[in-house]
Design a protein around this nucleic acid. Structure first.
Lengths: 196, 196, 196, 196
DNA sequence: GATGAATGAGTTTTCATTCAT
DNA sequence: AATGAATGAAAACTCATTCAT
């Protein structure tokens, strides 16, 4: 655990394929046989790279989270420039929600983390903290001033999770624009009003 | 849709037990054998009451959602009175998040709806819409005026789902109070500022 | 563990069949599919009775040991009568070695106990102690006097294990008669000579 | 039979490592992957030296038995001198039982010979005969006279196997001393009493 | 000599579901 | 109403073995 052999191309490929399958049909219906098939390899070979389904899932989760973190970091950088807050919000929402597929995995992984996989859970918590602070920092930069935007970051992040959920359910069109606008106004208000 | 044969006590019991098990270990890891065991009946009997696992799950989801809807309705009624907005927000958050266990099942059911159970999914979407409008209405009443609080209701609801997720993960303390405060201020701002 | 449902006939049947198969081909080559087949049931049914291969094996071991114990007890009773020592020895040897098949299982179980199955090991040790004391007691009765026949019982028992091994290997004819004679003479000598 | 290609160092190393693993966990639970790993080579390389798992095991057994034979021979030589019978017995017992680990492998190999490996079985039988006659000869020398000590040798050898078994199980302390004493007395008796 | 990659045939395990009683 | 018994189809996992480089 830790000394992962520098992910060879094949491993990478398997990861990709598996992630795709999970997105499409959920994990329960993504059997190792299916994955092997889709990856164009035998079950044996799959085993060669991942000796357990859990292992595979953990790796998928890992990459998933790394990617989100990366995206948020990129946002943080660009947020330094003089973008309008609204644009920035849209960006965050878009960025993180990204695609239906990604969301599906996100949700699944959370579940998995909850019931089966303590280490995965650790990983999630850790990452959530990181995201929160990055976003908080970014918000501070966008709005200037020295107010703490932690809470707002929290709400934003939380809302993102919720949006992913709802979008997954296909609960009508999720009004990303409106939500962005909401947060923008809320943000401004935060800047203006000093808390008691 | 709705007039189910007057759920006998046994059926009720099974429901309760199954819900508990699902909370604890997730749907995939809750087998019918386990449920039957925990309910103190045989698998055969379980099938007498529910001819399919899906049926059982649907019923659990049904009751779960009915309960949430009921709570929100109660809130709507009480919101008619002159409560402070912040109090109201807290109430909603508390009400819906309610308990860790309830949240857990909520998440599982969503997952289930996503991958397995199209009719369950329908049910969810329907219910979400209802919640949204109830909450929107309630917000309108709290803040007065004739602005549309749909978006805010949406965000609020979304955030709730997100909060449930994060609480489940045990990602630190979820600052319900802060979130409530955030929404309160945002709400006030909404009332004051007229959109262009 | 412990509250075994009073072994219904089917369970008994499975046990018998499985034991036979193990005798014939060893455990590695006795797959659950083979057992199910031979027992005329499906793999699923096999699972109904034994949810794990280990469980099944444990039960086989259990019965195996119970039977040996029972036999030895019977011998103890009959040894009270005035049989000639040599006859008695023969009886013990025959009784315990019994059949090639039984020996095979015995050996396998010991191995299993050694590497995998601590509880099985416990069981073995326990049973060995019991056998030792029963045999010792019986020897005392046969030879009369108040000498301790523990050591002799130990050697006898040990030799039995060894005989089983050698018979299994098919290492020529095991001269049970000669061995019996040897022990008989040794026993007599024990009685006559007082240790220093 | 015998002139094996002058076992290179690597082959020797593999043998050693594999033997150790088998001692620790038994043959079934010792996979080629494990052996390769422990030997610090790849599975491919392992196959370069041993084209089959059976081959490898045969070699291990071969060395194991050669060593025992060698020890018994050494005993035979020393038994020519005027050691007290009891000392000699102790020596045999100690020599053969030697160490827990060795005993362990002995048992595993027998098992393997029984179920898998007919040629290994041949080898065992052959070797057992050899041991028997060597020991018989040695006994004759120790006790003098021209009586046949074959049976006693048989019992002694058999008891050794049994002792190994019991020691492996950790069934209390194996009273090697007592057993040695028992055989000594039995031996003396053998010398004195002429059979009818 | 050495190896990493690939494989397939088999083995255990899981479980929703059916049904005679 | 209730149940124990039975099942099959599918899933995860195991591992000795092969082979191109």
């Amino acid at each position: 655990m830790g000394q992962r052999k520098t992910t060879p191309a094949k491993r990478e490929h398997i990861l990709q394929v598996a992630a795709q399958l999970i997105r499409d049909r959920g994990i329960e219906h993504t059997t190792l046989a299916t994955i092997a098939d889709a990856a164009g390899i035998s079950k044996g070979t799959l085993y060669y790279y991942y000796s357990t389904k859990s292992d595979l899932i953990f790796d998928i989760a890992d990459r998933h989270m790394n990617r989100m973190t990366e995206r948020i970091f990129r946002w943080l950088e660009s947020s330094g420039t003089a973008l309008s807050p609204k644009t920035v919000f849209r960006m965050v929402l878009d960025t993180v929600m990204h695609s239906r597929s990604r969301g599906h995995i996100h949700l699944y992984l959370i579940q998995e983390a909850l019931t089966e996989n303590p280490s995965l859970r650790e990983r999630f918590i850790e990452e959530y903290h990181r995201w929160r602070s990055i976003i908080g920092e970014g918000l501070g930069r966008v709005y200037g001033g020295d107010r703490e935007y932690t809470v707002m970051a929290q709400v934003l992040l939380t809302t993102l999770d919720g949006l992913i959920l709802q979008r997954l359910l296909g609960a009508g069109t999720v009004p990303v624009d409106d939500v962005a606008a909401f947060f923008e106004q809320a943000g401004e208000m935060f800047r203006e009003h000093t808390p008691d």
